[in-house]
Design a protein around this nucleic acid. Structure first.
Lengths: 191, 191
DNA sequence: GTCTATACGCGGATAGAC
DNA sequence: GTCTATCCGCGTATAGAC
């Protein structure tokens, strides 16, 4: 199931390219296949043996990003006892993920043209929110209300994450802890 | 104070270029000075008599975006009676602005390299949130708590707006009304 | 699976004429 | 204030050799 190493010289060029791409996004906000190739130490032609085109590489990164989010948020939810604290823990973990993996977070949410050509990505993205189904169902009898709660908690978490990264709340590194706590507290009040 | 019309053939090339840029962002997510020039019906050299470079045009658009937001949100807040409803009205107006001016909204929030070279923009962005000072002060005695409330309301509004545009809540056009109501209701609960 | 070489196009930006 | 012409660099993508 895992992406087969498919490597010869590199052992795993896919990984090297995606890592380089993330660095570039972190530093410049964008990336080029050419520059990522240079950083990975291969020619500009090499990537095309692993990806159909530039967008395919981007999609691969985003896919892994959603998987990482799923892992992280699962653990955060498991670590909490009651439903309310589970949702609060999700919100805090969401903020922390954004801060810890800024470039990855931005790619998953802002990468652009996904729904059409990369429908699977939209699914993977929505799947992250399904983690909230359990807690939400315990707090809202009406299924419609439960979905509403899921969306609301997700929106709050995302809003705080976006504000944090944008610097609205001050220096991101300094404000991380307090923002996580704010996200937790806001989530509690929404229930 | 206003940008002088500065037009000859065009009457107002600045406006034409910025409008074209917005269309391009709406359609493709990015824009080029060259293509914007074509759409405005001028040569690729013309813009440089009005802007130092491409980023300057982008900054000009963002600046106007914040001004428009300020106008809109002011009116929304004025139209509500008590502080709670004023904050709720802001949140709803925020969502509506994002839906009504998608490209402009994305530019103001995602344009990238602003804080450094275009410090004024960060100021203009923060100024929008100062609209919430009045209502917040009426609801929270402690100044620190008031700021916290402002940030929280802003984050919630932004989260819903981002989710709406990203399609998380379904087709954006269909979901606009309900999302505005959700933003209003969530804001009320946060107070 | 990777390289070298190459075709192709495009965007940013400037110089100089009108 | 706008145009024409031009320089320069870069990125995407492919062909063909190893």
């Amino acid at each position: 199931m895992a992406t087969r190493p498919t490597g010869k010289h590199h052992g795993d060029l896919r990984n090297a390219l995606e890592q380089a791409a993330l660095e570039l996004v972190a530093q410049q906000g964008t990336f080029t296949l050419a520059e990522a190739s240079r950083r990975a130490g291969v020619s500009v032609a090499a990537p095309y043996k692993h990806y159909a085109d530039k967008d395919a590489l981007l999609a691969s990164i985003a896919q892994k990003g959603y998987e990482q989010q799923y892992e992280r948020f699962s653990k955060a939810i498991e670590s909490a006892a009651d439903p309310v604290e589970q949702l609060a823990a999700f919100a805090a973990a969401y903020v922390q993920f954004a801060a810890d993996n800024r470039a990855l977070f931005e790619i998953t949410f802002n990468a652009g043209l996904k729904k059409t050509r990369y429908y699977d990505l939209a699914v993977a993205g929505n799947r992250v929110l399904t983690l909230l189904r359990g807690p939400a169902a315990q707090l809202r009898d009406d299924p419609h209300s439960a979905i509403d709660l899921i969306h609301t908690v997700g929106a709050v978490a995302h809003g705080f994450a976006a504000f944090l990264l944008e610097g609205v709340l001050g220096d991101p590194a300094d404000a991380l802890e307090s923002t996580m706590e704010r996200a937790r507290e806001a989530t509690r009040r929404l229930i």
